[in-house]
Simulated scan of single mutants.
Amino acid sequence: MSTDAQRNQQAGGPDGAAQEWQRWHEERVLAVAAPYGPLSLTGTHWLSDYPDGRIPAVPGQWREDGDEVVLTATAEDGIVVDGKPLTGEVRLGADSGPVDDSRVARGDRRLVVLRREGLWAVRDFDPASPPRHAFSTIDATPYDPDWALPGTFRPYPEAQAVRVPNADGVERGLGLGGEIVFTVDGEEHTLRAAVEPDGSLWAVFADATSGNGSYRFRFLRPGAPAADGGVTVDFNRALLPPCAFADHFICPFPPPGNTLTVPVPAGERNRLDA
């Protein structure tokens, strides 16, 4: 039995699953609205666009040096690194933890170092961002047990990589580890999925509601498959991607084959502002 199916069983059947989904939904809204949630991202600044190291919206001077970024600051920049004011130079790697644990800060802002395909960037998270304060909630369809579907994960003999457009208009690689197979109204469908380090799955998909009742694409994160490949494909937990909350994320679009021909009227649909 898959992790998701076990959770639904332990929750006490459909009513328990609906209550568990409601808790999940409320936690999602809180996480999105948190001070350093996705709504607080005000910019992703690629260092290659600033050869002199001066990013207009970000204090300090930032330059690439091989596998590190060198940040130089004066007292006037007001930058803090590891909790101490920076006057001089520090070498940084890519941040991998929560945003609020990033090494670099300026007041309430967090300056997060990012690396993608050999390119370096600085992300600026500001709790005072207008989108965060305009946010109301996530529009999501109430739990429907008919959209918690049994499925099977079929791993590829070897991991694959495809190039897909990203939300910022740049094409990047997307690693894929296999296909999730499931049935809707008697018709078989598949989603190509990545395998996360903990064994869980991640699929980027669109469907017949995308751009017409729901965001243009969504994420699905099933738990790790069972030993026989069984996995619950729970579209009730379809997620809005980070770029639905801030334009500065670089979310991948669905890879070829991941646009479902059927409507999926379940899960998160859109961001709602006050």
Score class of each variant (00 low, 15 high):
residue 2 S to W: 04
residue 3 T to N: 03
residue 4 D to G: 15
residue 5 A to Q: 11
residue 5 A to V: 09
residue 6 Q to H: 14
residue 7 R to A: 15
residue 8 N to C: 10
residue 8 N to A: 15
residue 9 Q to N: 09
residue 10 Q to Y: 14
residue 11 A to F: 00
residue 11 A to P: 01
residue 12 G to S: 06
residue 14 P to M: 01
residue 19 Q to S: 00
residue 23 R to Q: 08
residue 23 R to Y: 03
residue 26 E to N: 12
residue 27 E to F: 06
residue 31 A to R: 13
residue 34 A to S: 15
residue 34 A to E: 13
residue 35 P to M: 12
residue 36 Y to V: 02
residue 38 P to G: 10
residue 39 L to H: 01
residue 42 T to S: 10
residue 44 T to I: 00
residue 44 T to Y: 11
residue 45 H to L: 12
residue 45 H to G: 00
residue 52 D to M: 02
residue 58 V to I: 15
residue 58 V to Y: 04
residue 58 V to Q: 06
residue 61 Q to H: 12
residue 62 W to F: 08
residue 66 G to I: 02
residue 70 V to N: 01
residue 71 L to K: 00
residue 73 A to T: 03
residue 78 G to V: 09
residue 83 G to M: 08
residue 87 T to C: 03
residue 89 E to D: 04
residue 90 V to L: 03
residue 91 R to N: 07
residue 92 L to T: 01
residue 95 D to E: 13
residue 97 G to V: 02
residue 97 G to R: 09
residue 100 D to F: 15
residue 105 A to G: 13
residue 105 A to E: 15
residue 105 A to H: 14
residue 108 D to T: 14
residue 108 D to F: 10
residue 109 R to G: 06
residue 109 R to H: 14
residue 112 V to P: 01
residue 115 R to L: 02
residue 116 R to W: 12
residue 116 R to K: 10
residue 117 E to N: 11
residue 119 L to A: 13
residue 120 W to P: 02
residue 123 R to E: 14
residue 124 D to I: 01
residue 137 T to W: 10
residue 140 A to D: 00
residue 142 P to M: 03
residue 145 P to D: 04
residue 145 P to M: 08
residue 148 A to Q: 04
residue 149 L to T: 02
residue 149 L to G: 06
residue 150 P to Y: 04
residue 152 T to F: 05
residue 157 P to T: 06
residue 159 A to G: 11
residue 163 R to L: 15
residue 170 V to T: 13
residue 171 E to Q: 13
residue 172 R to D: 13
residue 174 L to P: 06
residue 182 F to M: 05
residue 184 V to Y: 07
residue 185 D to S: 14
residue 186 G to P: 10
residue 193 A to W: 00
residue 197 P to Y: 11
residue 199 G to D: 07
residue 200 S to Q: 05
residue 202 W to S: 15
residue 202 W to K: 07
residue 203 A to I: 02
residue 204 V to C: 09
residue 204 V to T: 14
residue 205 F to H: 10
residue 205 F to R: 07
residue 205 F to Y: 15
residue 208 A to P: 09
residue 219 F to C: 06
residue 220 L to Y: 08
residue 222 P to K: 11
residue 223 G to N: 08
residue 224 A to I: 07
residue 224 A to W: 11
residue 225 P to R: 11
residue 226 A to S: 14
residue 231 V to A: 05
residue 232 T to N: 03
residue 232 T to L: 15
residue 233 V to E: 02
residue 237 R to L: 10
residue 247 D to A: 14
residue 251 C to Q: 06
residue 257 G to H: 08
residue 260 L to G: 01
residue 260 L to P: 00
residue 261 T to S: 14
residue 266 A to E: 01
residue 269 R to S: 07
residue 269 R to M: 12
residue 270 N to G: 06
residue 273 D to I: 09
residue 274 A to M: 11
residue 274 A to H: 15
